[in-house]
Write a protein that binds this DNA or RNA. Structure first.
Lengths: 63, 63
DNA sequence: TTTTAATGTAAAGTTTGTTTTACAAATATA
DNA sequence: TATATTTGTAAAACAAACTTTACATTAAAA
């Protein structure tokens, strides 16, 4: 699953650490998701999409 | 996290077993998600939302 | 160029999602 | 009512998400 977190993070001028804190996970989790090592849980996907004011589908693309 | 799977399943006249097969998980997984025992993974949430032609946000409500 | 901040990565451990097997309870059908 | 189908649930095992610690690399700033 692909995602636009890195781009959104850049647009909002957030470091991985800052984003991690805002959605309450570790920096490594953000890094791993950005690098496609695994997909976020649904609750985390919701937190991220709310933070950026976007739908989950706009941020995460299945396949 | 709440969801409308049971309702959607009824509308589409699908058993838990049939839905499980369509989204490629076990019946127990569907049952557990319906009963709120745990949240689906993001990939599974995508499969379910595509099956019902709805957005993830329409089916799953965070908190 | 030196120092600091940010990112990439890895291993070990915990938690959560999922499967399999199995059985009991509820609902529909004969 | 008897039988079959559907749903609820539970335990053991495994997989995926996530944490913590730790260090190396890259990029930015002094």
């Amino acid at each position: 699953m692909k995602n636009k977190i890195k781009i959104l993070r850049a647009e909002h001028e957030l470091t991985q650490q800052q984003l991690a804190e805002k959605v309450d996970v570790s920096r490594q989790t953000i890094n791993a998701i950005e690098k496609g090592k695994f997909d976020p849980s649904l609750p985390l996907a919701f937190k991220i999409s709310k933070l950026f004011n976007m739908s989950i589908e706009e941020i995460f693309q299945n396949e």
